[in-house]
């Protein structure tokens, strides 16, 4: 697992989200199985550790260009070990399978939260196509 900490153009996913809709708080829950995002109207959206792991913006998962990404399966019981803020723009999430190269920009997290159901449904079908399972 290489440490590719660069900012690739791939980070642009969901970048159209405007700044004033970024979460106010990102909370790692006690059970370590999700991140809870709080938006300015007090609205909470949870994104599961599994979704964060399989949709990691790292080069390892997303590859180095379009159509170079992979489908990650078997992460149903993944937990988050820790969060680490990266500059002013992102958070690095370390998972308990050793994966820690994903740098999640505030915008990307917001995108995962806002489009949660669609992204999740797409992921489930990707799993079927790849012949993988969640657990």
């Amino acid at each position: 697992m290489g440490r590719l900490n660069g900012v690739s153009s791939n980070d642009l996913v969901g970048e159209s989200t405007s700044d004033n809709h970024l979460p106010e708080e990102i909370r790692l829950t006690r059970k370590r199985d999700c991140l809870q995002l709080t938006f300015n109207e007090g609205e909470h959206i949870s994104v599961s550790a599994e979704m964060l792991r399989v949709k990691s913006p790292s080069a390892e998962v997303r590859g180095h260009g379009p159509n170079d990404g992979i489908t990650v399966g078997g992460k149903k019981n993944i937990r988050i070990n820790t969060l680490e803020q990266v500059g002013n723009y992102a958070v690095r999430i370390s998972f308990d399978d050793g994966h820690d190269t994903g740098i999640y920009t505030w915008k990307y997290l917001t995108y995962l939260a806002n489009e949660h159901d669609r992204i999740w449904a797409e992921y489930l079908s990707e799993l079927v196509v790849a012949g993988l399972r969640r657990a």
């Binding site: 992979i70 992460k75 820790t82 969060l83 998972f95 308990d96 050793g98």
Partner: peptide, 21 residues
């Protein structure tokens, strides 16, 4: 790809206080 075998309750991850700025 490597997938983790997670035994619930077997190992509670210790939150390290690695913080940014």
């Amino acid at each position: 790809s490597l997938t983790a075998e997670h035994t619930p309750g077997a190992k509670t991850s210790v939150p390290t206080n690695k913080v940014g700025a």
